[in-house]
């Protein structure tokens, strides 16, 4: 079992609330989503491990147990080609859970006509292995769900 932390502050909502069927239908994997607090903020690592992939708009952290968690900062944000995101770590870095990875401002994403909602996905997990998904207000670093 591992605790997966909220990468950003905001309102924890179900994946079904994500305005992108790839995530809302669970195609990428099970997990949760956060409607982030608007304003400048830092997205943190949801688990301890290695930054296996770091894009400005999304990152994957893999723990020593081989389990990987994807954090996607907003929807269709790949189209921004990094604009509005500042990397605070590098691909291959080892990070602790809760360590800042990317600085961004969800209000800028929203102003650009995109949803700033952040899916947090347990990769290669079965739906049944994601438990105790939190709903409502969370701060970055609070527990978001458990992966058994």
């Amino acid at each position: 079992m591992k605790a997966v932390l909220a990468p950003v502050e905001g309102a924890a909502v179900g994946l079904a609330a994500v305005p992108d069927p790839v995530f809302s239908a669970g195609m990428v994997g099970p997990g949760a989503a956060i409607d982030p607090l608007r304003g400048p903020g830092k997205a943190v690592a949801p688990i301890a491990g290695k930054i296996m992939k770091l894009h400005p708009h999304a990152y994957v952290i893999v723990g020593d147990d081989g389990k990987g968690v994807l954090v996607h900062l907003g929807i269709d944000t790949v189209q921004l080609k990094g604009e509005g995101f500042q990397l605070l770590a590098a691909e291959g870095d080892r990070v602790s859970a809760g360590q800042p990875v990317v600085a961004w401002d969800p209000s800028e994403i929203e102003a650009g006509g995109r949803s700033p909602v952040c899916p947090v996905i347990a990769l290669d997990a079965t739906a049944a292995s994601v438990r105790d998904v939190v709903a409502g207000r969370v701060r970055a670093g609070d527990e978001l769900f458990r992966w058994i």
């Binding site: 994997g29 296996m52 992939k53 994957v60 893999v62 990987g68 994807l70 990769l123 290669d124």
Partner: peptide
């Protein structure tokens, strides 16, 4: 069959 490995392949 692994989304993790596909994303890693990049």
């Amino acid at each position: 069959k692994s989304i993790l490995q596909i994303l890693a392949l990049d």
